[in-house]
Design a protein around this nucleic acid. Structure first.
Lengths: 99, 99
DNA sequence: TTTGTTTTGAATGATTATGTCAAAAATACA
DNA sequence: TGTATTTTTGACATAATCATTCAAAACAAA
């Protein structure tokens, strides 16, 4: 259950690439990428899509990783975090069924 | 499966109170409360707590409603919304077990 | 109409997101 | 060691988003 940051750091290190190379592909400063990999910054959607392209992995997998990180972050301090996630699931299912 | 806004509007109308009264208790402009009830604005945590107090309902129930609304909002446009919620659940469970 | 309530939108202020840059710290390795 | 390379950090800038206020418009009831 890796975070987005852990995932892309692992991929980058497997290929023995410096931050610079990946950051250039994303068209951002390497400092930002460093922070993304360590979870100090959030990537945005566009960056996630580009990362999937760069590493040739399934875009939806990386989006799930990114979105779930954001969700966890949003409720991390709440006692009712799990319950909120479950209710959110029901709401999404309901919205989908009626749309 | 009511949203926070629908919930508090229902409660307010049952008691036949104007926005003004509830807004005064929350110490906000009634325009904001109107928007919160209609889902055009997000309440903040403090407001949710006060709303539970005002309507004498369980605080955690209203917090769940509020948090789940926020979660749904955050992923509403994504194809992988459900998957992201499920992965987020696993991450929360994992974090809890290791803490 | 008159009165009270609710909704809307423009304007403003606050907060968050995003990025750059340069220096410090860590790492690799001749 | 010393030097080059890479990574991390933090100060700063700017843009985008969000929250709030206010007044006016729209609505509802008497």
């Amino acid at each position: 259950m890796l975070s987005l940051g852990e995932t892309i750091r692992k991929l980058r290190e497997e290929k023995e690439l410096p931050l610079r190379t990946v950051a250039a592909f994303l068209d951002i400063d390497q400092a930002i990428l460093s922070k993304i990999e360590r979870g100090q910054r959030n990537a945005n959607r566009e960056q996630v899509v580009k990362l999937a392209e760069f590493f040739k992995i399934k875009e939806s997998d990386l989006l799930v990783s990114w979105l779930s990180d954001k969700l966890v972050y949003e409720i991390a301090d709440e006692d009712v975090a799990l319950k909120a996630l479950q209710v959110a699931e029901e709401k999404v299912k309901y919205n989908k069924s009626k749309k």
